[in-house]
Computed example of a mutant assay.
Amino acid sequence: MPLLPHGAHAPGSVPHALDGHLMLQVKRVDPAPFDDVSPVDGGLVFCGLKAAENKAAVLRDRPFTGPVLIDPSAYEKHVATPDRPFDAGEASLMAADGLEEQLERQRMQGATMAVTPTALLSAGDLASLEAVAERALEISDDDVLLSLPVDARWLRAPHHHDLISMLRQVPLPKALVLCATHDPLSTAEAAANLREVVSSVPGIGLLRSDLAALDAMVHGAGFASIGDSASARHGPTPDRRGPGPRRRDPAVLLPRALSYHYGETIATAFDGAEAPLCPCGACLEWGAANGSADGRRPLTTFTDAVDTHGAHRHNHAVWSALWEWIMRAADEADAKERWQKYCRRALTEIAGLNEAAGRPGRTFGPSAALRVWAGGEPRRGRL
């Protein structure tokens, strides 16, 4: 089946069940703050090779009326080829081919939409991307979400223009997953080009992300998810070496800096200095339970594995509150301005945090993405 004519505008296809939702994405279920997720404008995305199993275990005795997705995460083990763009297995008595079988299985498992088991799309591999698009155009069901796990190097020019051109020709609801060994937005070029992708492809979603989800949402993404752990904030790449052993201390979101830092890093930085305090709902609960003098939790107290659940609750509470504040804007232009102003303020706050810690260097240095979100001009560099 041919694609739409080159340059044709695919209609925005944000599925009603996901429209405007900023969801929590999880890979390890034990520390995840499931009870804090709003069913109204939030949702749950389970990823990893045990995604379906974890979804069943978590929601068996926990009723949840918001959207729930099962990301089969085929991209964690498989790289797409033109002949095999999906890790779909074989046909069975229940379905005409392996892809249909997988999608039907997710429906039976209670997923709000069935997510395609797309393999990793290597940077510049237009043949495999076109194979995904061709097969997607054969799907007529309105409850299917086309997963697009792309190597982050697709965000390097001119690859991102090819990505935009192809995605605009697929009217099926779709979502990007950025895959990289570490931060997929480690350069300003990547952050700026991701913004161009989501603003150029009507209704696209961004899954398995970090605070980039907020920037994507205010610039045209129809829905997004933020991971509760580092492994759920971007996809891995099967052919590239991953991070080292898992740390005991959790990653903590510094609200004033709009960045994640390991708990021990924060504690060490403020050793002998006044610790930053957090007034988010989760930290106020901790303050009340632990007799904190001012009711808030010091951000220097997330230093061990036992603090992981608390850190994940804090992280979720912070970005949820920030998103709620952005969405109280009068219109889309005001929402963009609110987000940009917050990012600009974060650049100033980072300097203040370093000074308060007695470390005027780069302990809490701003990311390249933050500078782009704040309105800085991207400097081109290699991913």
Rank of each mutant, 00 (worst) to 15 (best):
L4C: 04
H9S: 11
G12D: 07
H16V: 12
A17M: 06
L18S: 03
M23L: 03
K27R: 03
P31E: 05
A32L: 05
A32W: 05
D36H: 03
S38F: 02
P39A: 01
V40I: 06
G43W: 01
A52G: 06
R60W: 10
L69S: 01
E76Y: 13
H78V: 15
A80R: 02
P82M: 14
P82R: 07
R84H: 12
P85K: 02
F86T: 08
D87E: 15
A88Y: 01
A88D: 02
S92K: 13
L93N: 08
M94T: 12
A96R: 05
A96P: 03
D97H: 05
D97Q: 06
M108W: 10
Q109E: 09
G110C: 04
A114H: 04
V115E: 01
T118H: 02
G124C: 13
D125A: 09
L129P: 00
A131V: 04
I139D: 02
L148P: 00
P149I: 12
P149R: 02
R153A: 07
R156F: 15
R156V: 14
H159T: 11
H159M: 14
H159I: 11
H160Y: 07
S165M: 08
L167G: 03
Q169I: 03
V170F: 04
A175P: 06
L178P: 00
C179T: 04
T181I: 09
E196S: 14
V197T: 04
S199Q: 09
S199C: 08
V201E: 03
G205V: 10
L211Y: 05
L211F: 09
V218C: 12
G227F: 10
R240Q: 07
G242K: 07
D249N: 13
D249Y: 11
P255I: 08
P255T: 01
A257C: 15
A257Y: 13
L258P: 06
Y260E: 09
H261G: 06
H261L: 07
G263S: 10
E264Q: 11
T265V: 15
T268P: 07
C283V: 07
L284F: 08
G287K: 11
G291C: 14
G291V: 15
A293D: 15
R297D: 01
P298F: 08
H314S: 01
W319N: 05
W319G: 04
S320P: 11
W325I: 06
M327D: 11
C343F: 06
C343Y: 05
R345M: 13
E355M: 12
G361E: 11
R362A: 09
T363V: 14
A369I: 09
L370T: 07
V372C: 00
A374N: 01
P378R: 00
P378A: 08
R379Y: 10
R379C: 08
G381A: 14
L383K: 14
